[in-house]
């Protein structure tokens, strides 16, 4: 009897811990493909326009992805020329280069 009670208590405790581990996310919706925040994408575009002397009207992010560790990769077009930018959550750009 005592063993059964202890086993039941252990199972209950495990279930509670399992629920804690699977705590619901704070967000209720998400995009199926994770992308960089829009403001960081545009910071990359702005810096690229300045660095390569291209009009900001012809500079646009065309895609982005999450690299992990608070870093994002942003693909850009600079008047038709592709470029790549790596930026972090603090808006620090570590890489900015034309591709190809």
């Amino acid at each position: 009897m005592r063993i059964a009670v202890i086993a039941a208590a252990a199972a209950l405790l495990a279930a509670c811990q399992g629920q804690q581990a699977a705590a619901p996310p704070t967000a209720t919706v998400r995009a199926t493909t994770a992308t960089a925040p829009a403001d960081l994408q545009l910071i990359c575009a702005s810096k690229a326009a300045e660095q390569y002397n291209v009009s900001s009207e012809q500079t646009l992010p065309t895609g982005s992805s999450v690299l992990g560790g608070g870093q994002y990769e942003v693909q850009l077009t600079l008047a038709g020329a592709p470029a790549r930018c790596v930026i972090d959550d603090n808006a620090e750009i570590s890489t900015l280069a034309l591709v190809g």
Binding site: P25, T28, V29, R30, A31, T32
Partner: peptide, 8 residues
Amino acid sequence: PALATQIY
């Protein structure tokens, strides 16, 4: 299309 948003 291929769906772009998910809900929890």
